[in-house]
Design a protein around this nucleic acid. Structure first.
Lengths: 255, 255
DNA sequence: ATCATAGTCGTCTGCCTGACGATAAACAGC
DNA sequence: GCTGTTTATCGTCAGGCAGACGACTATGAT
């Protein structure tokens, strides 16, 4: 490395941006906030903010998440995207992991900003509260954010970041039990299946899905209870099991 | 986001660190440089350096790689670790992708440094040239770097970064054709198998491996030539095919 | 009572993998 | 030249798992 003369290297601002995903009404949705100031004033963006001096990157992401949604984050063990095991069996608190870092020189017109994006997977939440300096917040289907036909596209390079986060979520529920992070503490096999269907955008065979998830050791543990719902046979309730890596993985249908 | 008053957010230095992996003598090795200055003076570290004002993160990583090894990088399409396709069928130039970002407040004792680590997979190279400010460079088996019994451990949090990079490489050769990045332009099935064996640290059945890789469409294309080697039947030569994602994946043996 | 809805259990077939035998084509030493 | 050794390549077989899909169950709605 070069000498650490502070004048020798350019000043950077470091932020965290959040891709917060949830499943609402059978659709994969992301949290978007309306920008209250220039540039991109009035446009939608991902929530985020500056990293403070005394906190690490994951702490900064968790703090921004709490400020923006009130969610308590359940940090993944590492930044290693390959699936480092971590204690995210618990379903209270959302899953948080580092996604990637974006640092093109011109990604922010005002100064050089390097943003460490994080991915959050959360169960369906009540309406987001507009916290901090955002003049509004909403859950939006990702298609609306990625291919906006009426509104403006996401600010900065946030469309790219969102797309990367969605792709990460899509591939990660294949070989990990992370799909349960989209579910409440207790859930049915059908609810879990609808999570996979929403995230992947496909229809899955209920019978084969049931066989697969109940047959994978450590994925689901029955709580003993059953649902009482309107229309249809009551379903068994499950909690997320201790397994984090699914082997063999769930297979995403080809076409 | 908060207002962009430059005095409102703390100053960060942003660096790139490189996990450069290769396979030498049937062992997975990483590039290490000896630190010429304090702190950790004389200890081994990962190569890296500051990001410049006019370059993005991938360019900074490619520049450091060239300075340190003379390698030309073949950048992956995205930072998306899930396997965004990219044109790394060509074997000239090493594969480069973003790994993860490390920004604990005390990871560098002098100031707040956020390091965007990158992963490079390269074929076996001649002796590294000690470029820049490093007073020495070498290829070291990763076990020597991660569990040093005689020498000091890697500087900073580089052991953690290296471990994350190795884990990324191990998992990524399962479901992508990236193992060919460790091979020269033309290679045999046996050489590719020895790459898998070195990276995973296991022994694979030559017959099943041969059936698997030659049967996966787009993975390997025969060049027509054969090797003349000492001892053993000559083997067919292959180039890396266009496929980047292997479906179904290579299976890493369980235990 | 009947229908619609959703959950759960089985069956069957094809594909892939792991284990492993057999053959092929080079080299080394006698 | 013959034999043993090494590496590459082809085949065979059994087990496991996934996709397709039939059948049955348990609730609410009409």
């Amino acid at each position: 490395m070069s000498p650490y003369d502070p004048s020798a290297h350019p000043p950077f601002a470091v932020t965290v941006d959040l891709v917060v995903l949830t499943v609402r009404r059978h659709a994969l949705c992301a949290l978007a906030v309306r920008r209250g100031e220039s540039p991109y004033q009035g446009q939608w963006a991902l929530p985020g903010g500056f990293v403070r001096t005394d906190e690490n990157l994951a702490e900064a992401a968790a703090r921004e998440l709490a400020e923006e949604t009130g969610l308590r984050a359940q940090q993944s063990a590492g930044t290693s995207p390959a699936g480092t095991p971590g204690p995210y069996g618990g379903s209270n608190g959302a899953h948080l992991e580092q996604l990637a870092t974006y640092g093109d020189p011109d990604r922010d017109p005002r100064m050089r900003v390097v943003s460490v994006a994080h991915l959050v997977l959360a169960p369906d939440l009540p309406a987001p509260r507009a916290g901090g300096d955002a003049s509004g917040a909403r859950w939006a289907p990702i298609d609306d954010l990625l291919q906006p036909e009426q509104s403006a596209p996401l600010a900065f390079d946030h469309a790219r970041i969102l797309a990367d986060g969605v792709e990460r979520a899509r591939s990660k529920i294949e070989y990990s039990s992370l799909a349960t992070a989209f579910c409440p503490a207790e859930f049915t096999v059908g609810e879990l299946r609808r999570v996979y269907e929403a995230v992947w955008g496909v229809a899955l065979d209920p019978r084969n899905f049931h066989r697969k998830v109940t047959g994978t050791p450590g994925f689901l543990v029955p709580t003993g209870g059953t649902t009482t719902r309107q229309g249809g046979r009551p379903a068994q309730l499950f909690r997320a099991g201790g397994a984090t890596l699914l082997n063999p993985p769930m297979l995403r249908p080809e076409v």
